[in-house]
């Protein structure tokens, strides 16, 4: 089955439509790098509090799409809609304020800070930005955080299972924990959408599994939509409710994990193009 057929099928059936309206939409995004078309007319929908996977082999355009969504790249054509607002040209920090949080492939470590300190800082930057300067001329820094702050930070620590590390400095902690801390910093601002860039990079199977479980819990409790950009197909198929598959800059499939598993174009993209060429030859 060719990509156009897949798209046709998708249009006919419509993307699986959960009750809530899409919180993030990408409409016909096209990106050219010089003469190379990195993305051609890619569209996707992220329903509220759904887990959406974006997969594809290396060079499929995943990272480009990720940059377009998070605002580091402005597409040549098409638009990005966040919560009903067109943010195609908005800078990353503007999108962040509108509720788009992201993590990085390699987490930045604040080695000498404890987990609680990091989360508190992230919380204050979001909720009490003025304290960065106003603390210098008041005595608030000497008092414990507000009950709201303590509760929120504690909640995130518990949600991600970081209790044993709460008071520990980050240095020496495993990568998996560092990634969770980064997710915590992103979640603490109660974003609408959480973008995860290659969360399995640098993790072993067991760590990946545990990370996935924590994200599941987070998505449920925090009602946040999670967009997972990954090359590890198995992880995405296990975690996501809705999966988009990119190859050579085009969307070749979209659907539930079961549908994706059965999709021949996806198999071809991941296992080689032999089956497609045979098919094409037959035609």
């Amino acid at each position: 089955m060719s990509a156009s057929q897949t798209r046709a099928r998708e249009a006919e059936r419509g993307a699986p439509r959960p009750a809530s309206a899409p919180v993030l939409e990408v409409r016909d995004v096209t990106v050219d790098f010089g003469g190379v078309r990195a993305l051609s007319a890619v569209s996707l929908n992220v329903p509220g509090s759904a887990r959406v996977g974006l997969v594809g082999p290396n060079g499929a355009g995943k990272t480009t799409l990720f940059q377009v969504i998070s605002g580091f790249l402005v597409p040549d054509k098409g638009s990005v809609i966040l919560d009903g607002r067109d943010v195609t040209a908005a800078a990353p920090h503007v999108r962040a304020r509108l509720g788009l949080a992201r993590t990085f492939q390699v987490p930045e470590r604040f080695e000498t800070m404890t987990v609680a300190e990091q989360l508190t800082l992230a919380h204050r930057i979001h909720a009490e930005r003025r304290r960065m300067w106003s603390d210098l001329v008041s005595l608030r820094g000497w008092r414990p955080g507000s009950p709201g702050e303590l509760e929120r930070v504690g909640e995130i620590i518990e949600l991600l299972g970081l209790q044993p590390f709460a008071r520990r400095e980050v240095q020496g902690l495993p990568v998996g924990i560092a990634k969770l801390i980064e997710v915590g910093c992103a979640l603490i601002s109660r974003p609408r959408v959480l973008l995860l860039d290659e969360p399995s990079a640098g993790l072993d199977t067991k760590e990946t599994m545990e990370f996935a479980r924590a994200i599941d819990r987070a998505a449920e409790q925090e009602h946040v939509a999670v967009v997972l950009v990954e090359h590890d197909l198995d992880l995405v198929l296990n975690m996501a409710q809705l999966v988009y598959v990119l190859d050579f800059g085009r969307l070749i499939a979209a659907g539930s994990p079961e549908e994706i598993r059965a999709d021949e174009a996806v198999q071809a993209a991941y296992l080689g193009t032999a089956s497609v060429t045979v098919e094409q030859a037959a035609q």
Binding site: A116, E117, P144, G145, E151, G154, I157, E158, Q163, R167
Partner: peptide, 10 residues
């Protein structure tokens, strides 16, 4: 206990 986790204890 949850609040306890969040305390800055430096």
């Amino acid at each position: 206990e949850r609040r306890e986790f969040a305390k800055l204890v430096r």
